[in-house]
């Protein structure tokens, strides 16, 4: 598995290198454009701030109340069968509904269990590999007469479930 870790190390520098070469060869104002994009990035994070505070607040309360332990104990036998780590459940539930909410829960998990831990990796992969499905569908159908589509919902949620299980499996290979 060391090979995959090695390979991952090369991917990012390579991508950045290709971006730089393409920018210079196409004679665009690489730095000015970078600044423009970076400014947009900062705006995104600033807008995210209130949600993060709200989510950290509620998840922190949930965790310190001790209810997670109880729920985890109840669902553990079921999850054990499919080898899904119970710690991930809150993330799996919020992921299709709220993007910034999921960022909050995932960040919380990574802080709690360690960003490079198995749980931390699974949370990262789930965040990278799935989308805010229900929210996205709501945005795209908002201008249409057809508000609901059972077929679409089933197809995209099954994609999410499979993506999350795949995340768990791949992270086990990784660690």
């Amino acid at each position: 598995m060391n090979f995959f870790t090695e390979l991952s190390n090369y991917i990012i520098p390579l991508i950045i290198g290709i971006i730089m070469i393409a920018g210079v060869r196409d004679k665009i104002k690489v730095f000015d454009i970078f600044i423009k994009g970076a400014t947009e990035g900062i705006e995104i994070v600033i807008k995210l701030m209130p949600t993060l505070i709200g989510i950290f607040f509620s998840i922190g309360m949930l965790r310190s109340s001790g209810i997670f332990d109880i729920v985890t104990r109840i669902v553990k036998p079921i999850l054990k069968i499919i080898k899904f780590p119970p710690e991930i459940i809150p993330l799996a539930l919020i992921r299709p509904i709220s993007g910034s909410g999921a960022i909050g829960v995932a960040t919380d998990l990574m802080k709690q269990y360690g960003v490079d831990s198995y749980i931390g990796n699974v949370a990262s992969v789930i965040m990278g590999a799935t989308e805010t499905t229900i929210y996205t569908i709501a945005v795209y159908t908002s201008g249409l007469k057809v508000k609901k589509s059972k077929e679409l919902l089933i197809a995209s949620l099954s994609a999410d479930v499979v993506g999350m299980i795949a995340a768990v499996v791949f992270c086990r290979i990784l660690s």
């Binding site: 870790t5 490079d116 990796n121 992969v125 590999a129 499979v162 993506g163 791949f170």
Partner: peptide, 17 residues
């Protein structure tokens, strides 16, 4: 220690999903 370590699993899981 290695923020980019998860990139291959992410690609794999997204494509499968």
């Amino acid at each position: 220690n290695d923020p980019f370590r998860i990139i291959l699993p992410v690609w794999g899981a997204t494509i499968i999903a």
